[in-house]
Design a protein around this nucleic acid. Sequence first.
DNA 1: TAAAATATTAGACCGATCGTCTATAAAAAT
DNA 2: ATTTTTATAGACGATCGGTCTAATATTTTA
Lengths: 210, 210
Amino acid sequence: MRSATPLKRRRGRPPKDQAGFNQTKAELIRSGMEVLTEKGYSATGIDEILRRVGVPKGSFYHYFKNKDAFGSELISNYAKFFEHKLDKSLGNRSLPPLQRLSAFMQEAIDGMARHQFKRGCLVGNLGQEMGALPESFRRQLIEVFETWQQRLEACLEEAKAAGDISSDTDCKESAYLFWTGWEGAVLRAKLERTPNALQSYADFFINSLK
Amino acid sequence: MRSATPLKRRRGRPPKDQAGFNQTKAELIRSGMEVLTEKGYSATGIDEILRRVGVPKGSFYHYFKNKDAFGSELISNYAKFFEHKLDKSLGNRSLPPLQRLSAFMQEAIDGMARHQFKRGCLVGNLGQEMGALPESFRRQLIEVFETWQQRLEACLEEAKAAGDISSDTDCKESAYLFWTGWEGAVLRAKLERTPNALQSYADFFINSLK
DNA sequence: TAAAATATTAGACCGATCGTCTATAAAAAT
DNA sequence: ATTTTTATAGACGATCGGTCTAATATTTTA
């Protein structure tokens, strides 16, 4: 439990100078991301998200219609962030395709380690909670998986073209499988608080391609 | 939302004849299992569990110290149920080892289909929620995975002995990987409300052994 | 430059949820 | 017959989550 930040915030319409940059909203999204990747959607109260960054409730409902809308924005935000990451890693032409994938996984492992394996994947967390979530989240989450899958599929096609993986590999199917299993590994790593599941899966998947 | 069951229940000490059989407690556990596998722990209120089976609050706190104790019993219960299932399927000597695994997975798929892929795995659900759960759940969940892993490991050893899989397979590692990935597939199936991820993973895993 | 519009903070409020507690009831034990 | 045990019934208070209205400060506009 982080200590509260009882900073008094400026009321009223903000000065124009630093326009475009929405400090408070960004803080809320960052805070929400942290808590949601740890505890999930249902277990997380808005108050906790607010307390962490010392933002009053009124601000939250100024920036977001309600908790659901907030959640939806978090997903979009996470998706965008992740796509960038994937483009950089899986699309990195200076490395052979499969090494890119390995590098991506290693980065993810390091990332989880930095947070003591307490934070998981937002998409996985919310996916598991679907039963308690607004139905509109479903399509959103499915689509996120699809874009990730496309990125990996492209990378695998390159690997195939380079002869690094068998020519009869179904790259689309493989990419689908990768993300499915990866989410399982993230879940397990979070449960065990070790990189073991991730490491193990990484080796397994790479090997399965050869 | 299921309609309430406003059945008046027998008050007072129960007759001795049908002793040992604890109707109400069993109903609470069944009800809890249903709701928790759908919505998870945090999103589920005790009242909802009670409403489904028309049991008043007093009874709940008669049988369980509190929500956490209830959750813990659910895990034990689920674990026991599942171990039985695994013993029957993975230990079925009348089938070759790998076919047992395939059969188990197919049963699981059918099971999820019966509930329109709305219910997942209790262990997976709670695992993902760990950040919001009592710390004592962690060991419990890890141990459940371990017993599942042992069951599968034994089955894979049989397959190895029979020459159905490569002799240099690390059966323990494979079994660990299986459950990791399987949870990912269950999650995905729940999200997509289709058997696709499960089917896909089933084929993939079996193939990876050969 | 005064008024209107806009952007943001502040926090009161209501309903839901959790867990406790007391009352009631029926059977068993003494 | 009285007491003890086992169980249901549901009211209650504290707390918390989410919504909504008021207050405040800045920009825009006339």
